[in-house]
């Protein structure tokens, strides 16, 4: 069992996260799908770091985490603002992007 197995695992998690973004109407849930995708990427970075015996992968994963934290803060703020404006966080409601 090598670190490669974790890469497979990460691929599965990434696909699940992507499916969540597509299928869930609740903005918070879709957002959690995005988080899962980020974490899957992190797992790949750490696994490769392990495989190559370099620490840079971990550093990258760390940066991803920091950026994800910042992104979560802003994203959740946007969700709250959306909720205040529309009394809902359903992704189907703000159909103002309609052409």
């Amino acid at each position: 069992m090598t670190a490669m197995s974790f890469v497979y695992l990460a691929a599965i998690l990434f696909a699940i996260g992507a499916a969540a973004v597509l299928l869930r109407r609740n903005a918070i849930v879709a957002f959690m799908g995005v988080e899962l995708m980020l974490n899957a990427a992190n797992l790949v970075l750490v696994a490769f770091s392990r495989m190559y015996g370099e620490l840079d992968g971990q550093i990258m994963a760390f940066f991803v985490m920091v950026v994800a934290a910042a992104e979560v803060v802003v994203g959740l703020a946007i969700i709250i603002a959306l909720f205040r404006a529309r009394q809902t966080i359903s992704l189907d409601e703000p159909a103002e992007l309609k052409g």
């Binding site: 299928l23 189907d92 159909a95 103002e96 992007l97 309609k98």
Partner: peptide, 17 residues
Amino acid sequence: SRKLQTGQVRSYAATML
């Protein structure tokens, strides 16, 4: 192509994916 522009965020996400 206007029909593609449904205004549904999730459709856009699906298109991207």
